[in-house]
Amino acid sequence: MIVVAGGSGLLGRLLVGDLLAEGRQVRVLVRDPARARDLFGDAVEVVAADVRQPEEVRAAVAGAELVVSAVHGFLGGRGAGPAEVDDRGNGNLIDAAGEVGAGVVLMSVSGASPTHPVDLFRAKYAAEQHLRGAGVPWTIVRAPAYRETWLGILAATAGSGERPLIFGVGDRPIPFVSVADVAAVVVAAIDDPTARGRVIEVPGTPMTMTGLAHELQASRGWHGSVRHVPRPALRVLSVLARPVSPAFARQNRAALAMDTGVPSGRQPRPGQSRPAHGS
C-alpha cells in the first residue's frame, strides 16, 4: 500500500494516476475527500486527514509500506502555511511512517535552504532534515518551478486584455519543469530500491518569465505587450500584505526571489545524488 499525501493536487493527481497505471494499491490522504473521489472514483482509497493533526495522520498511514508527501502550504492562509504544512505537517507524516515501518518519498524544492528568503524553501529544508534523522528508508525529490503553475498564474493575470502580468523585470532565466516529468521521476524513485538515501534533483529548462508569457500568448493567439509589477512594489506587498493575507505576501516574496535570483542552497553531501534522472 502506497499512501500519497496531497494526492488531489497538481502533482499528486498525476502521481496517483501513474501509480494506478502500474497496478499499485494507493490510498490518498487529503483534506477534501469529495474532490479526490471526483478525480479517482473507486480506484483509490480516500482518507480525510489533515497533516497538521498527528492522530489523523497516524490513522491514515496505518498499513502503509511507503508514504509519498506531495503536500505544500505555499498558498495556505494563517495557520496553514509552509511552517505548519511543509515543516510540521511533513514531520507528522515522517513520524507516522516510522511508527509503521514505512519508507518516505518527500517532495521538496530545488534550492531548499535554512537561509532562503522564501519560507516555503526553509520549511522544505527543515522537513528534509527531519526525514534524514528519522531512521526510515527515505528519498528526497527536489524540483524547480512548475511550468503549469506559472502559465496558469500568467493566464489569470491577463484577464480579457490578453496581456499577462509579470511580477518584476522578467528577464532572468528560471528553470521550469513540467509537472508530468516530476511525477515520472517520483514514480521511478518509488520503483527503484537504489533511490533510498538519495536526493534526486529534477532538472528544469531555463526560460525567462517574459519568454513564458510570450509562449502563453502565442499558444492562445493573444496579442499586446506584457505588463509588469515593479520590484519595489513586490517588496512592499511582501511586507504590508502579511498581516491581512499571508499567502499573497508569500507569493510576492517568491516572485521577487525568482526575479532577482537567490542562492541555490545547500549542496548534497558525499554519496547523495544530483542527477536529473530519478534512477
Rank of each mutant, 00 (worst) to 15 (best):
I153Q: 15
V16T: 10
G98P: 12
P54F: 13
R52G: 10
I190V: 15
R250E: 03
V262F: 13
L154A: 06
P203A: 14
R52Y: 07
A257P: 08
E201L: 03
V67C: 15
L66F: 11
Y125E: 01
R227T: 02
E162I: 00
D171I: 01
R132L: 15
A255P: 09
D119G: 11
V105F: 06
A83S: 10
M209R: 06
L240V: 12
S225W: 00
T139I: 09
G170D: 01
V47G: 02
A257T: 00
V57Y: 15
A21F: 08
R52P: 08
G7V: 09
L39S: 01
R250G: 11
V28H: 12
V26T: 02
S238D: 12
T139E: 05
V136C: 09
A59D: 13
V202L: 03
D171A: 09
L11S: 04
S238V: 15
H130E: 11
G7L: 09
G224V: 01
G152H: 10
F40T: 02
Y146H: 06
L216G: 02
E148I: 10
R24G: 01
A49K: 14
I174V: 11
G41E: 07
R88C: 03
F167A: 05
I2P: 07
Q217D: 07
V109C: 00
S238N: 09
T208R: 15
R27E: 04
G12V: 15
P175R: 00
G152T: 13
F248D: 13
G135E: 12
R37I: 00
V105G: 04
L154P: 02
A102G: 06
V169A: 15
A241P: 08
R13A: 14
G133R: 14
S245I: 10
A213Y: 04
V71I: 13
P33H: 05
D181L: 03
P232L: 11
A70D: 02
A5P: 14
V177D: 06
G221P: 07
V187R: 02
Q217K: 08
P232D: 14
F40L: 11
V16G: 06
S110E: 03
P144G: 06
V100R: 13
R37H: 09
L151W: 04
T210L: 04
Q53N: 13
P193K: 09
G111F: 03
R220M: 12
A156Y: 05
P175N: 05
R142W: 08
R242L: 12
G23I: 05
E162T: 01
V57K: 15
V177Y: 00
W222V: 01
Q272C: 10
V244R: 07
D50Q: 09
P137W: 13
V199K: 06
H116Q: 02
A195E: 05
G101W: 10
V104D: 04
P33V: 00
R122D: 08
P246I: 00
V236H: 01
E148H: 09
N92V: 00
E99Y: 08
S273T: 05
V28G: 03
L93G: 04
V68W: 10
A49E: 05
V105E: 02
V244L: 04
S225M: 04
V44P: 02
P263S: 13
I200R: 01
L240S: 10
M207P: 12
H72G: 10
A60Q: 14
A255G: 13
G81M: 02
V236A: 14
R142L: 11
W138P: 10
E22T: 07
R253Q: 12
G133E: 15
F248Q: 11
L240H: 06
R163L: 02
